[in-house]
Amino acid sequence: MELLDRYLHAIKFWLPRAQQDDIVAELSEDIRSQLEEYETKVGRKLNDFDIASILKERGRPLVVANRYLPQQYLIGPVLFPVYRFVLAIVALCYLVPWLLVRFGLIVFDPSYRSVRSVLADVARAWPSFWTVAFFAIGAVTTVFAVLEKVQSKKKFLDDWDPLKLPPVRDPNRIPRLNSIIELAANFVFAVWWVTGAWSQIIFDRAGVRVVLTPAWRGFFWAFLALALGNIALASVNLRRRHWTLLNAGIRMVLDSAGAIAFCWLLKAHLVSEVISPQLSPAHAAEISNAINTYMAKSFPFAVMACVLIVALSGIPRLVRLRTGRTRLIQSLALL
């Protein structure tokens, strides 16, 4: 019966101390009764293999012990879906920008394109990536574990008011406030742009001047046209407060054009010269070069950010409107 003792000892390890002996005594009695009955049935003394097969049927010691323990969990079934949702958002907010920046560097930075430099960068970023990920997941888990503890004692989730449920939001409806803010912001921008950004001397104070290249004028007109376009669209949206394929398409075109113009501006080496009485011409040229270089270096990040913003805001809206339209046509065809 040495094997049985080993089995019972393994079970005992996982049981609550106060009940260990009692539970093991009862289990021992039950198993011994079963073994005796089996011995009578086969008409011989049981060997270790017979006992092992009976014990295997009863289950792993941890599983057997677990049945005597109260149900325990770090995050219970009520909070678990929320926990999973928050984890997914944290992962998305952390992982996607990280990947997009690397992708942008590979696409737009020639010095980054070799396999060696990509691997070197990934190897450099790897430890900090996991450290931040570990702490982010750990922090979310800790918060939810604490919430679970509080919930199990205070039952705060049971106290809710159906009257406080948020209204069902029509995703195709354009809130009036959004249109007003958009209108005001673009109007202020357009006034400021026309009065302050026309000149190629973009900064002139205390003897310091920053002069831009003639290409600036092209950007001036482009951004002014975009601001006017946004004002026109916001004015229409203020009156017709639903997204249609037409105004959503125009919104997408304006946003994409703004993103392209902004990214282009970064690569255009717009700073022609920096003039200051305290700077030698050579030093001033170095500064203007540095500004142009840093702007150009931020180009990949800007492209990725713009793609992300335009794609997340515009594409789902267009897809939703298109599927809605298809469904409407199908329903009309059924009538």
Partner: peptide
């Protein structure tokens, strides 16, 4: 099975 019965009895 015994894994259900004994915890239930307790």
């Amino acid at each position: 099975d015994e894994g259900t019965l004994y915890p239930l009895l307790r």
